[in-house]
Amino acid sequence: MGEYRPLTEGLRAYRLIAGMWVRSTLTYRASFAMTAFGGLVVTGLDFVTIVLMFSRVDVLGGYSLPEVAFLYGLSATSFGLADLAIGSADRLGRRVRDGTLDILLVRPAPVLAQVAADRFALRRIGRVAQGSLVLGYALIASDIAWTPVKALMVPGMLVCGGAIFSAVFVAGAAFQFVAQDASEVQHAFTYGGQTLLQYPPTVFGKELVRGVTFMFPLAFVNWVPAAYVLGRPYPLGGLPRWAAFAPPLVAVGCCAAAALAWRAGLRSYRSTGS
């Protein structure tokens, strides 16, 4: 059988289970079509509200519409990617409560992969699509002084942002081992964080920006690196110049912390049980 490799095994299990859920969803085609369409309308309207705001004002916190669209596109797309990949992890609490987590635990695959693929919902691709459209508009409409580094940073931000949001999802799921009804708290950080990042940091209070930079480092999804790309000052005065290139480090740090939290959570489940 060879040596056991959690990462490849996990990805394989993820693919298998996600595939099963896609097929399950497609057995109710009409329902799938309607929720997918509804989702697209709702996410579409989300950006429309910002556009409407700009019909009254020319700048928001010093940012023009294309610049806000840049922030919005980065935030929505990276969040969408994370939500698509492991957003279902917030259902863990329910599985703990009704005891069906046990079924996942007797399968020969990493539990995290199974939990992440649980109820995999293809319709979440809508969020990624909408975010990418807004990002595309921003790239065309804004007058960024492009350099090769800046061009590379855009896909880099999406990947790192996705990883940071994923880490938040996993940490939230880990917390649900302890508090099974904490999914709303988790939403405050995931959905809430995503909405926060869609607006320029300059519209928020300094304390909030500081918290989101140092304590709960969502600012590295877009605020800090995007400020560099747009040629604007960093949201916090004291940040060093290289902070714009920190997202990969931050992402790795977040993922490591989330992995530790997950292990601790799973361990506590195995010692508490039901």
């Binding site: 056991y4 095994e9 099963m20 109710y28 069906t100 020969p108 695959a109 990493p110």
Partner: peptide, 21 residues
Amino acid sequence: TRLAHRIGVVFGQRTTLWWDL
């Protein structure tokens, strides 16, 4: 996970089967 390959479990009250498929 290594043990999972060598054991089979049936939970009488909860199904491991895929509901909609």
